[in-house]
Amino acid sequence: MSAHPSLDPSVVRWSVPPSERGDRPVLLLLHGYGSDEHDLFGLAPYLPERFVVASVRAPLAPPWPMPGASWYPIEGLDGRDPDAVTLAARAVLAWVRDAVGEAPVGLLGFSQGGAVALQTLRADPDAVSFAVVLAGYAAGGELPGDAVLAARRPPVFWGRGAADDVIPAALVDATAQWLPVHSELSGRVYPGLTHSISHDELDDVRAFLDARLALASPSSTG
């Protein structure tokens, strides 16, 4: 496949200026299809303050008239190429290397961004500490990092709505099989929730993130 465009560092939203980041853990937000860096950044006030939140813009433009940006092309309900998801994940990894450095990094992605979050974890298990996947899925195929994940079982939160009809059922079923084998899985299916994020889900995400901070530094729960 052709090279994937890189992430544009000029369209990243940060929760704090460079002088306040230091070695604080970074939570990277990956938006969904047709959205941009402003969308998930609205969640920042609901997230633990200890995290430096960074929200990036996906590098591709979806077909007109869809607005916003996309991480990989979608052509019909079954048009989600795992190789394209991997290319997007490698673009995320390149951005992390350039913009974050040695600070711990966790990922939070919605829909397409959730798929990329998991694929980034799979592409380089050493670069990502955990993943929060909201209304997303695990792309098919196999990656070299899968065996590492199965041995390490990094923390993953997977939340989805019971009334979400956007992600094909086959992908949801495959993800439900894949995640328990390759992660320390927590999460919830939210009754009545469509392809969106609810307040109950945000509360669960906050608890998951607080637990990550507590394990990393018991005296700094943010």
Rank of each mutant, 00 (worst) to 15 (best):
P73Y: 04
S129G: 15
H182Q: 11
S70N: 12
A84M: 04
L107M: 07
S183V: 06
A150E: 15
A131D: 06
P63I: 09
V166E: 09
F157Q: 05
S196E: 10
V128T: 08
P73V: 06
F130Q: 02
S2Q: 13
R57M: 04
W158Q: 09
L29I: 10
G161F: 11
L43G: 01
R21T: 09
P180I: 09
D83V: 13
I197N: 01
G187Q: 10
A91D: 04
D203N: 03
I74K: 11
Y72R: 02
V172A: 08
L27W: 04
G141F: 04
A214C: 05
A115D: 02
P154W: 05
W95F: 15
G76W: 05
S219T: 14
H199R: 13
R90F: 01
D78W: 02
A89C: 07
H4F: 00
E142Q: 14
D173L: 11
D126L: 11
R212E: 13
P155Q: 12
P48C: 09
D200K: 04
D126Q: 14
A88W: 03
D203E: 13
L134A: 06
A54P: 05
H4A: 06
A99W: 00
V181R: 14
T86Y: 00
G76M: 05
A211P: 00
D165N: 11
A138S: 13
P5N: 12
A103N: 03
T221M: 09
R97V: 07
Q177H: 05
S217K: 08
R160C: 01
S19G: 13
T120R: 03
G136A: 07
Y190T: 08
I74Q: 13
A91V: 06
V132R: 03
A123L: 02
L215N: 10
W14E: 08
V172F: 04
L40C: 04
Y190W: 12
A163K: 03
G113V: 12
V105R: 01
V53N: 02
L29F: 01
P154G: 12
G136I: 11
D210W: 01
V172K: 08
E102M: 02
R13D: 07
V100H: 11
P59C: 08
P191Q: 11
H199Y: 07
M66S: 11
H4I: 09
L149Q: 04
L193W: 08
Y190L: 07
L30I: 07
Y72K: 05
E142M: 03
A44F: 00
G113K: 07
G22H: 07
L28A: 05
D23W: 02
S217R: 14
G114Y: 09
L209R: 06
S19N: 09
L209M: 10
V205M: 10
R24G: 05
L7N: 00
L87A: 15
V105Q: 04
V85E: 10
Y137M: 12
V105G: 00
A147I: 01
A117Y: 05
S186E: 13
V156I: 10
L30G: 05
V205G: 11
A44E: 15
V52P: 00
E142I: 03
G159Q: 01
R122N: 09
G161V: 02
G42M: 06
W64I: 03
P5F: 10
S19I: 03
F110R: 08
S111P: 11
D83N: 10
F208T: 04
L209W: 09
P5K: 07
S55C: 15
